[in-house]
Structure formats: C-alpha cells, structure tokens
C-alpha cells in the first residue's frame, strides 16, 4: 500500500475544500471498495478525507412525501428503516441482496453509488484495462467476461456496475445531491452513471472534488408496489448475474406507472425506457410483459460467453412484472 495522508473533517464544506486543495485525494466512507482497490494497487490516493464525522448519515422524510437518505447512511440502516421497508420495499430488498451483513454495516449510500466494477481485469494491475489505464486495451472483450455487459458497452470497455442499490434507486426516480466548491446540484440517478464510450475511466458524472451529500427519493406513486429480484451464482454474497427493480401500478387491469431497471447488464443501472413505453397503459398480461422485456433487450449485444444474461434478464423482468401485477390485482379486489 502506498502511504497516504488522512483527515477526518467535521463539516461538509471542509471536506469539499480538502479535495479541492489536493488533486488525487479521495473521500473515504465505508471503505469496503476503496480500501480493497488501494490494497490491490488499482488506486493510490495521496489523501483520504474520511466522511465519518460529517452530519450526513440521517434518513429523513421530506415535506413533499419523499425521503432524503444521507450519503453516509449505512446500507444496513437504510435497508432496515421503517419508511424504506414500507414505502420503498424495492430499495430495502436491493440493499439486502447486496454483499454480506458485515459489509452492509460498513458500506454507505454514497459509497455504494460510487463503487467500481468487479471486472477481473480492472482489479488486476498485471493486465491491461482501459478503465484503469486509459488506452491500455480491454482483455475482457475476448477474455473472461461471463459476468460482464450485454447492453451499452463499447469497444473500449465491457464492464458492469456492480451495485444492487443503484438499480432500485434508478427505478425509484431518485436524485443524487452533489456539493462542489461551486455549490450544489442535483442529478437523477439514471443520469449519474455513464456508459463507457471512449472514456471508460469515467464511471459517473461527478466532477472532481464534488461530494455526494445524499439521495432524494420522491414520494412513491399512489398505490405503487415495488420489488427487486436478483439472480446469482450462490445464495448470498455474490454480484448479480442479472437483476431487476420494478415500481408498478395497475388500474383496471392496465398498467399505470411502470419503472423498470436492470442490474448486472451494463456499465450503469439500466433504466428500461423502451419496456416502460410498451407497458404504460397496456393490459397487465403476461403477453404485454414479454413484449416489454423483449423491446428493451432487443438492443442487447452479448459477448461470446454471456449470452445467457439476455434470457435471464427477460425471465426476471417478466416474472417480477407478473408477480407484482397479480399482487396489485389481488389488492384491488
């Protein structure tokens, strides 16, 4: 490990100022991914600015009926929060589907959004990787890529974003609050992560020195049901082969609000707009759900060894749409 300096400011402005003053410095929250990457030599920040003393760990209801989740709120606390469990079950389920209890006790909301791909070449400094060393090449495209992207990848990068939580946030139309030296701004979660294009080194739109202060969840649509489903190699502590988050309302047998997002398929949580287009106003039937999933996944470009992700994502989406639609119908009856 490279030697580094460490500070633990108590005020948010101070934390932001530290980053502005020290190029290459990084914020440290739960450390569950950053510290691993430092040990692996993937990154070596000269300064760590620990966010642990900042007053950003709260979860509070907002006047508009939504919820503001602080950037340093722990994944386990957010998952267990009564309002999250009752009004945003998709978020609670996604958080609990991620990592292990020990990791969730340490990992934070902001850190979870900013975690980096688990592509094996990215994590192995003895191999090329365009995300780690721009221009060095992407061995994953022809190499070991069973777990990697089928949507939105580029010639430069086929990595996936590993978060479960972010997939739920994408389906919930959540917004990320950012604070930089020049003030605050808000970015929708769906626009927060980038596709790799020719700059796979950039995971997100966060500007250098900007700090995530929290994530704002709008009030859920009236009558909405939501859920998260994830397929993985083992029953716990494994990244998603594919996952799906869904927020759904059904009125008189027709789909009302439908927000669908996929995880494990792309460089970012994949909001399925084409599927939603098919769903909105259509009869809540298995046929509609299959058509919706197919509409979205028609864009998939699987690599040699990850074609299974397309039917997997399709089955997960169709299954979850069917289950939530049945529950909605049963609740209405």
């Amino acid at each position: 490990m490279k030697p580094f300096a460490y500070v633990r400011p108590e005020r948010t402005e101070e934390a932001v100022a530290h980053l502005a003053a020290h190029p290459g410095a990084r914020f440290l929250a739960g450390g569950t991914n950053l510290v691993d990457l430092m040990k692996l030599g993937v990154t070596g920040p000269p300064l760590l600015v620990d966010l642990g003393a900042l007053p950003l760990d709260g979860v509070a209801e907002t006047p508009d009926g939504g919820l503001l989740v602080g950037a340093t709120a722990r994944n386990s606390d957010v998952a267990a929060h009564p309002v999250v469990r009752t009004r945003y079950p998709v978020l609670s389920q996604a958080l609990l589907a991620g990592a292990s209890p020990q990791l969730r006790n340490a990992a934070t909301t902001g850190g979870n959004l900013l975690q980096r791909t688990r592509c094996p070449y990215f994590q192995d400094t003895s191999t090329p990787c365009n995300k780690r060393v721009p221009g060095s090449g992407c061995p994953a495209r022809e190499g070991v890529h069973r777990d990697l992207a089928v949507l939105g990848h580029s010639a430069h990068c086929v990595a996936t974003h590993p978060s479960d939580m972010a997939v739920a946030l994408a389906a919930l139309d959540a917004e990320v609050r950012l604070r930089g030296a020049d003030g605050e701004r808000t970015v929708p979660v769906t626009a927060f992560h980038r596709l790799p294009g020719d700059r796979p080194d950039l995971d997100t739109v966060v500007a250098p020195g900007e700090l995530i202060t929290g994530v704002a969840l709008p009030a859920p649509p009236p009558g909405a049901l939501s859920a998260y489903r994830k397929a993985r190699d083992r029953a716990s502590y494994a990244f998603a082969l594919a996952s799906v988050a869904l927020v759904l309302t059904v009125e008189d047998g027709r789909v009302g609000h439908a927000a669908l997002a996929f995880g494990g398929l792309a460089h970012k949580p994949w909001r399925a707009r084409a599927a939603e287009e098919v769903l909105r106003g259509a009869p809540a039937t298995a046929e509609t759900f299959r058509r919706a999933a197919d509409a979205e996944l028609a864009a998939a470009e699987p690599l040699r060894d990850n074609g299974f992700k397309v039917p997997l994502a399709r089955n997960l989406a169709v299954g979850l749409l069917g289950d939530l639609a049945s529950r909605a119908t049963a609740a209405a009856a």
């Binding site: 094996p120 022809e142 190499g143 070991v144 190699d233 029953a235 716990s236 502590y237």
Partner: peptide, 30 residues
C-alpha cells in the same frame, strides 16, 4: 457441484477468479 467456478484465462495463463468474492465457495445461505 454448483458454485466453485475457476477460469483459466487463455491469453494470460492465469486463473481469473483469485479472490473469495469471485471464486464462490458456498456461504451459509447455500
């Protein structure tokens, strides 16, 4: 039978799954 999967990377000559997050030993839930 089900979870422990190791890939020999033909270009590098490496086993690609080299940590316990990617080499899936059964966990309690399994």
């Amino acid at each position: 039978a089900l979870t422990e999967h190791s890939t020999m990377d033909p270009s590098f000559g490496d086993f690609r799954e080299r940590d316990l997050a990617s080499y899936h030993v059964p966990v309690c839930a399994d």
